[in-house]
Amino acid sequence: MVIVGKVRRDAPWSWLKDGLADLAAEPGISLGYGAVFTLVGAAITLGLVAAGLGGLAPVFLAGFALVAPAFAIGVYRISQVRDEGGTPRLFDFWSMPVGRVTQLALLSVLLLVFFLAWARLAQFLFAMFAYGSDLTLSSVLPFLFSMPGLGLIIVGTLIGGALALAAFTVSAIAFPMLVDQDVDAFTAIAASIKAVKNQPGVMLTWAWLIALITALGMAAFLIGLAFAFPLIAHASWRAYKDFAPRPASSADALAADRASSDAV
């Protein structure tokens, strides 16, 4: 069982503000992680184009965003070390206890499953809507402006959005919790799900802001991701600290839930 606190309705904006303050306090390391994340995304895009599969680039970039929290561990550590009064260093994540690293790896595998599911579904949708078309960028772009292409965009967006929401629900505060506490991945996932369940309006607003910032970063020829990635990661740490999840006995968790319901 896990206890999750209650946050203000406008909390996502505070998380962004505090996340920006974290980034500004350690711009070199934060933007360094952002640059690495951006370079990986660019390498995926260029590799697909070189292989004649440029039409798949948007699909893989969207899937890449699903696993972004697993890449943000180093950024979470920056905020954590700052909160503890220390001076962040580039490879602070190597100093985490082995048990936490193991649980982080387990949660990362779960996000990888979401990524693979998205890739397979996208492949199926393209085969269904664009039968006979190749996957080169020059062929896919004109197709997307056709009626079948519009159908592909609508259905793909709906399915991708559902997967993204599921991935967000299980990982929104789970990764920061595993970085900060000696808990197992299932407890961290439960805390994240509980935060979304208890305050769906707040968390849907946060999910929308993450999607918007990520989209703007990708629209800037991926360069914007070097800034967007650490900003979202720092803000996600602030979201976790605001909810202040903690493991508890069944009795304590039930009492906390009852108190939260009475408050509402």
Rank of each mutant, 00 (worst) to 15 (best):
Thr136Arg: 14
Leu204Gly: 07
Val183Met: 10
Ala228Ile: 05
Met128Asn: 10
Ser108Val: 04
Ile159Glu: 04
Val170Ile: 15
Leu163Thr: 01
Phe227Met: 12
Asp180Glu: 08
Trp118Val: 09
Ala119Trp: 08
Thr169Ala: 15
Val140Lys: 13
Ser108Arg: 01
Met128Phe: 00
Ala228Phe: 01
Leu222Ile: 02
Pro200Phe: 11
Phe124His: 11
Ala188Cys: 09
Ala119Leu: 14
Met218His: 10
Ile232Ser: 03
Lys194Met: 04
Ala195Pro: 06
Ala233Glu: 02
Phe145Asn: 11
Trp237Cys: 08
Thr214Cys: 01
Leu165Val: 10
Ile173Thr: 14
Leu116Ile: 12
Ile213His: 00
Met128Leu: 15
Lys197Val: 05
Gly151Ala: 05
Leu216Asp: 01
Leu106Pro: 06
Gln199Asn: 03
Ala119Phe: 13
Ile213Gln: 00
Gly151Asn: 06
Ser192Arg: 06
Ser108Met: 04
Ala219Arg: 04
Gln181Glu: 15
Ala119Asn: 06
His234Val: 08
Phe129His: 05
Asp134Trp: 03
Ala122Val: 09
Thr214Lys: 01
Trp237Phe: 12
Trp206Asp: 10
Ala226Phe: 03
Leu144Met: 06
Arg120Gln: 14
Ala219Trp: 05
Leu141Ala: 14
Gln199Ala: 01
Leu165Lys: 05
Ala215Glu: 10
Ser139Asn: 12
Asp180Arg: 08
Leu137Ala: 15
Ala226Gly: 11
Leu121Gln: 15
His234Asn: 12
Phe124Asp: 14
Gly132Pro: 01
Tyr131Ala: 15
Gln199Met: 02
Ser138Asp: 00
Ala211Val: 09
Ile173Ala: 11
Leu178Ala: 07
Asp180Leu: 02
Ala117Met: 13
Met203Ser: 13
Ala185Leu: 05
Thr136Val: 14
Leu111Tyr: 00
Ala220Thr: 13
Asp184Ala: 03
Ser192Gly: 09
Phe168Gln: 02
Asp182Ile: 05
Ile232Asn: 00
Val183Phe: 11
Ala166Phe: 12
Ala195Gly: 04
Ala172Glu: 14
Ala191Gly: 15
Leu112Val: 11
Leu212Ile: 12
Phe124Ser: 12
Ser108His: 02
Trp208Asp: 08
Ala239Ile: 07
Asp184Trp: 03
Leu110Thr: 13
Met203Gly: 04
Ala130His: 02
Gly156Val: 07
Met177Glu: 08
